[in-house]
């Protein structure tokens, strides 16, 4: 279990991370979300033991993290890059050996992953001869080759085509199934929504909200319906129980005032327009994100 306790990080009197706490269990993906400059990278660096928190501590399996921690951590940074002039296998072996892997098991694992990602024929090539996507695969392999107990992935899907995104996603899921802790930082809300069992939303260094996706949806869900119709729907925005509406002429997303039943809304409009489809919608993580961040900024 990974626990962050009251983490604060100041740089020259600027507070980058302001008193955040979290807890992640084995076999879970923890989504660390937030707008640019919210403090995600600083938080990740503290977990990675690259920078020390000004106060508070990070505990892994009951122990405050120390230099031993380096060997059980895997990290895929957002901005990618590898030694362009070096050979694929040499680079993988370097990172594996830096994680204290023995040469023989590193070779075996490298072989396994290179085959799995269908890049094993590039092993003696120089990095710069590989396409961007293939370089990303190598970097992903470097992050997981030593079978880390804790894996931190920053935008793991960017730069991959849909087929390889699927491959990476499957790999992440199999790591989760084998009991790893994964921290995922991304701006792709749909990805986060599908993968993360826990969400932690951070803005301006502070925790905005956290919890399971279900809890978040309940809390920030509001009361939304989706309606497809023919006819003039412009009257809907004047209804007293409509809080907010996105009207696209034949389609509208409507936010109702709290505790107003969707069925009552349908009753109120069904005589005035021809309703083709009507559904109650759960808010997307994307919407929650935008609403919450905007709310704070206002």
């Amino acid at each position: 279990m990974l626990v962050g306790e009251n983490l604060i990080k100041e740089f020259n009197k600027v507070v980058a991370v302001n008193d955040i706490s979290f807890k992640v269990d084995e076999g879970k993906i923890f989504g660390l979300l937030g707008p640019n400059g919210a403090g995600k990278t600083t938080t990740i660096r503290m977990i990675l033991n690259i920078i020390k928190p000004s106060s508070g501590k990070i505990i892994f399996d009951g122990q405050v993290i120390n230099d031993e921690f380096f060997n059980i951590i895997g990290y895929l940074p957002e901005e990618r890059g590898l030694y362009q002039k070096s050979r694929v296998m040499d680079v993988i072996m370097y990172f594996a050996e830096l994680k204290n892997m023995s040469r023989s098991s590193a070779l075996k694992q490298a072989d396994y992953w290179l085959r799995k990602f269908e890049v094993s024929h590039y092993r003696t090539r120089k990095m710069q001869e590989l396409s961007k996507g293939n370089q990303q695969k190598i970097q992903f392999i470097c992050a997981i080759i030593h079978n880390p107990k804790l894996l931190i992935l920053d935008e793991p899907f960017s730069g991959f085509d849909p087929i390889n995104q699927q491959e990476v996603k499957d790999t992440i899921m199999s790591l989760v199934d084998s009991g790893k802790i994964i921290i995922l930082s991304t701006h792709q809300m749909e990805t986060a929504e599908r993968l993360c069992s826990e969400i932690f939303l951070i803005n301006k260094g502070k925790e905005v909200c956290s919890g399971s996706l279900g809890q978040l949806k309940k809390r920030f869900g509001g009361n939304n319906v989706k309606i497809e119709f023919d006819g003039d729907g412009s009257f809907m925005k004047d209804l007293s129980f409509v809080k907010n509406i996105d009207n696209y002429k034949n389609y509208a997303e409507v936010q109702l005032v709290d505790n107003f039943l969707p069925a009552e809304f349908l009753k109120a409009v069904i005589d005035k327009i021809q309703v083709n489809q009507f559904s109650v919608v759960e808010p997307t993580l994307n919407k929650i994100f935008i609403d919450v961040v905007k709310e704070i900024q206002e």
């Binding site: 990675l48 230099d67 060997n71 951590i73 990290y75 940074p77 590898l82 030694y83 362009q84 830096l98």
Partner: peptide, 17 residues
């Protein structure tokens, strides 16, 4: 400078001090 530019340095310092 190369490792800094390619952010490799971040992987390195998450592997050793």
């Amino acid at each position: 400078v190369e490792e800094k530019a390619s952010r490799l340095i971040e992987i390195l310092v998450s592997s050793c001090s």
